[in-house]
Design a protein around this nucleic acid. Structure first.
Length: 862
RNA sequence: GCCGGGGUGGCGGAACUGGUAGACGCGCCGGACUCAAAAUCCGGUUCCAGUGAUGGAGUGAGGGUUCGAUUCCCUCCCCCGGCACCA
């Protein structure tokens, strides 16, 4: 054992020992099973700080649970299909397969050097045919069940590159490579009927009490169940069907609006070139909801008239770009009096605005200016003929009843959630196992022919999916009639891959089945950890897929993740220089030196390379575009894995965003050095095992009280609260005391032995290498992780006295010491006698005295 | 635009159930050690006034409830995440 802390020497040695002992095999131990899972990484090249943080959180929880006697499964794998590999291929001419596998090899080494207790025997990559064959197999099951089906869907089309673009490839309405204005285009795609499960996905959110409330709220809003009515408006020989959540405002409908793709609009445009131009105009721009929702509201009258189902009045039918074909019926009844978007539109195009719901006493309806309470539901109906005077609730009931008797509508539930389109016009993904035959149509690939293997040597060039030009892949024969036929070249959304990988970790080598009996033993995942950016899509799809597999009889759980922790992003300071033309060049924080004044405030930042000044650009998410990424590997090389792990857990609670600071890493490093030298100094005098005697010196008794308070706090923080930063702060605080404690006799030394043994175990989930080394230095047998979690000695927690704060009119004026649980009147008396308190109540009348036991006295005096 | 979250010293953060605002760490200031520096150790550090005891102000802004509000309620400002083809 060396005198000074040298992570470069101890970390590889300890990792080798763990590997030799198979220390991280999930089958090890006898306790209850605990499945601890992080969202698997996209193999982008090297580990970034977000990964580092995610996997450290997971490792701390895993190691803590293991020390408490659980049988822990902590697996790792690779979300290996996706767009970045195609982009890298275009940039470097390397096939996505090779780029991806090289990245995986490098990142695996990095993960190993961080000392995570991962069971590497279960590693998987979604780009392996042994994995994705089960995507294909299950997709065929879903086709049989009618859950998977084909229809057209809207995509971003780049007319120059002749290819479909992802939303992120559309920048300011233009294709990122070609610069061409992007258009919307309808193409056939496969969909999964997630809307069939909308009710269950919504209802079972309530049972997910291990999930953050905000994630459940976001999912509930995303699913978006709304109660309302569908209403039919006659329009010539056609019918316009609409869905509304406000049937009570039906008498205030002054026009109809349909989406540009609505059959009625398309029909009307046939002999109206101006309208056709407008509809074509609506096809410009991207498909993302944010794009659509922020664009200017535009519309045009079709000339058609719809008939109000209750009054028989004629309403003009408009085409409007704020009406979405994908939601409801692609048409709305516009009630500008009580809907903000309709109001804005009516004002712009001079359409009538009619108030049909009363406002609170004294409020006047302003036809020129929208106010939020116009949308409220607590008024009474007016300007509504026979319905005048009804409350909104009664109005809904009466109007829906009348519509039903006229056969013009009915009450209905509508979801915002849309079916999941899984087709992607991309190469680097799981092939959709379909064969197109001129005679037989779309024919599923027979199960015995799975997997449909993706050729791995193609290189995308930006001109669409290279599979379309790969004869060897495309040409095949029809499984039904045997004639020449062509394979589907679309691949699956990568969210399919990530919707069930956590199931496959339980049986990664089973080549006969997608999942098996061990899956039921491990599921559900006890703790899932990942970025907040996945709060909706990934987590919703994974929940949905699990229910699909349950209904296929493959798994026995309704929900995949019992407890969820969503970590915040990792941020860093940005620095830049601006040239004359306003172009900014960004500099990495590692290359910038900062000067401070005597208060520690930043006065100047200079680039180390040339000594010239750079401007601080604020703290932002670590990203290539701002050049503010901090490479965890450089820090691991410099300080060792334990220091980097310690700082990333100490700097902020896991749910919150983490601002990276190299200076803070220094503090973590100093703490580990002090811990190391403190244990060494103690161990030099020999270890001191043996029972703690009942009679102790005052300092030793005080130290034990602090120790056992700390053990209780750290266990609570690691096991329940997941606030690793406060756990570490408590361990640091106690270590500071312990380092100052002077042992005067053997009893004191026994207490100090007990304390160091506990500290080394408490910090072990965070800094496993240091703890293994120091555990041995303290004379411990075997691994510190087999030593168990320290137990709280309740008898050590007893206090002699407590400090009580005395306030006068809510301001602290003094403190008193009393025995714990002193009677209220004695506490009150002592408080009134305190010197400074006397000064402040002197000459005043005491109105009230509030006593909070063992904490506080507040004297109210005037 | 819609949905969700956040805002506390020079900085990261703590205060868990309405009860001492600023634990722990960074930075900064002072001291010890050193020929010197680094490292290390000791002390101080919310702001303002005061030698000090102590007093006043203070948790994005404004208002409210309460003996007492960082915590609960209302209005507003700013920042961040998601918006269905980034993962």
């Amino acid at each position: 054992m060396s005198e000074t802390y040298n992570p470069g020497r101890i970390e590889p040695a300890i990792q080798a020992q763990w590997e030799k002992d198979n220390a991280h095999r999930a089958e090890r131990g006898e306790g209850e099973r605990f499945y601890c899972l992080s969202m698997f990484p996209y193999p982008s090249g090297k580990l970034h700080m977000g990964h580092m943080r995610n996997y450290t959180i997971c490792d701390v929880i895993s190691r803590y649970q293991a020390m408490c006697g659980q049988r822990v499964l902590q697996p790792m794998g690779w979300d290996a299909f996706g767009l970045p590999a195609e982009n890298a291929a275009m940039a470097n001419g390397v096939p996505p397969a090779r780029w991806t596998r090289d990245n995986i090899a490098h990142m695996r080494d990095q993960l190993k050097s961080l000392g995570f207790a991962i069971d590497w025997e279960r590693e998987l990559a979604t780009c392996d045919p042994e994995y994705y064959r089960w995507n294909q197999w299950f997709f065929l099951k879903l086709l049989e069940r009618g859950i998977a089906y084909k229809k057209t869907g809207k995509v971003n089309w780049d007319p120059v590159d002749q290819s479909v673009l992802a939303n992120e490839q559309v920048v300011d309405g233009r294709g990122w490579r070609s610069g061409a204005l992007v258009e919307k285009r309808e193409i056939p795609m496969y969909y999964l009927r997630i809307t069939d499960y909308a009710d269950e996905l919504l209802d079972s959110l309530e049972q997910l009490d291990g999930w953050p409330e905000r994630v459940r709220t976001m999912q509930a809003n995303w699913i978006g169940r709304s109660e309302g009515a569908e209403i039919s408006f006659a329009c010539g020989d056609e019918t316009i069907k609409v869905f509304t959540t406000r049937p009570d405002t039906l008498m205030g409908a002054t026009y109809m609006a349909v989406a540009a793709e609505h059959p009625l609009a398309v029909g009307a445009a046939r002999n109206n070139p101006e309208l056709a131009t407008f509809i074509a105009e609506c096809q410009k721009g991207g498909t993302s909801e944010a794009d659509v929702a922020t664009q200017e509201k535009l519309g045009m009258d079709t000339g058609l008239k719809a008939v109000h189902p209750l009054t028989g009045d004629e309403l003009p039918v408009w085409v409007a770009n704020y009406v979405l074909m994908g939601y409801g019926e692609g048409a709305i009844m516009a009630v500008p009096g009580h809907d903000e978007r309709d109001f804005e539109f009516a004002l712009k195009y001079d359409l009538p605005i009619v108030q049909v719901i009363s406002l609170p006493e004294g409020r006047e309806y302003d036809h020129q200016q929208w106010h939020d309470d116009y949308a409220a539901k607590d008024g009474a109906l007016l300007n509504s003929g026979p319905y005048d005077g009804l409350t909104c609730q009664k109005g809904v009931e009466a109007i829906v009843a009348d519509l039903e008797s006229n056969n013009a509508g009915r009450g209905r539930i509508q979801f915002r959630l849309r079916d999941w389109g899984i087709s992607r016009q991309r190469y680097w993904g799981c092939p959709i196992p379909i064969i197109h035959c001129d005679e037989c149509g779309d024919v599923p690939v027979p199960e015995k022919d799975l997997p449909v293997v993706l050729p791995e040597d193609l290189i995308p060039d930006g001109g669409g999916n290279p599979l379309n030009r790969c004869e060897a892949f495309i040409n095949t024969s029809c499984p039904q009639c045997g004639r020449p036929a062509k394979r589907e070249t679309d691949t699956m959304d990568t969210f399919v891959d990530s919707s069930w990988y956590f199931l496959r970790y339980t049986c990664p080598d089973n080549d006969q089945a997608m999942v098996d009996a061990s899956t039921s033993q491990w599921m559900p995942v006890d703790q899932y950890i990942g970025g907040i950016e996945h709060a909706i899509l990934h987590l919703l799809y994974a929940r949905f897929w699990t229910k699909l597999m349950r209904d296929e009889g493959l798994v026995n759980v309704d929900e995949p993740f019992a407890r969820l922790l969503t970590q915040g992003m990792v941020l860093a300071e940005t620095y830049y220089r601006e040239d004359e033309s306003g172009r900014k060049t960004w500099f990495n924080p590692a290359d910038v030196d900062v000067e401070r004044d005597d208060k520690g405030r930043l006065v100047r930042a200079v680039l180390a390379a040339d000594g010239g000044e750079v401007q601080p650009g604020g703290v932002e998410k670590m990203a290539k575009s701002k050049n503010n990424g901090v490479d965890p590997q450089a820090l691991v090389d410099q300080y060792g894995a334990d220091t980097v792990r310690l700082f990333s857990m100490f700097a902020a609670p896991p749910e919150q965003s983490l601002e990276w600071s190299d200076a803070g890493v220094e503090g973590a490093w100093r703490f580990l050095r002090r811990l190391w030298s403190g244990v060494q100094a103690h161990a030099e005098g020999g270890t001191h095992s043996g029972p703690i005697p009942a009679q102790l010196s005052d300092p030793a008794r005080e130290l034990r009280r602090l120790l056992h308070e700390t053990i209780a706090k750290v266990g609570d923080d690691f096991g329940r609260r997941y606030t690793f930063n406060t756990a570490i702060a408590a361990i640091m605080e106690f270590s500071n005391h312990l380092n100052r404690f002077e042992a005067r006799d053997d009893n004191d030394r026994r207490v100090r032995q007990e304390a160091w043994e506990a500290v080394v175990r408490l910090i072990a989930p965070v800094t496993p290498h240091v703890s293994e080394s120091l555990w041995q230095a303290l004379g411990g047998q075997g691994s510190v992780f087999d030593a168990g979690w320290p137990e709280v000695d309740d008898s050590a927690l007893v206090r002699q006295a407590v400090t009580i704060v005395v306030q006068v009119n809510g301001k602290v004026r003094g403190r008193i010491e009393v025995p714990p649980e002193s009677p209220e009147d004695q506490v009150r008396e002592a408080a009134m006698a305190e010197e400074n308190v006397v000064r402040f109540v002197d000459g005043k009348t005491i109105r009230k005295v509030i006593v909070v036991p063992d904490k506080l006295v507040n004297i109210v005096a005037t």
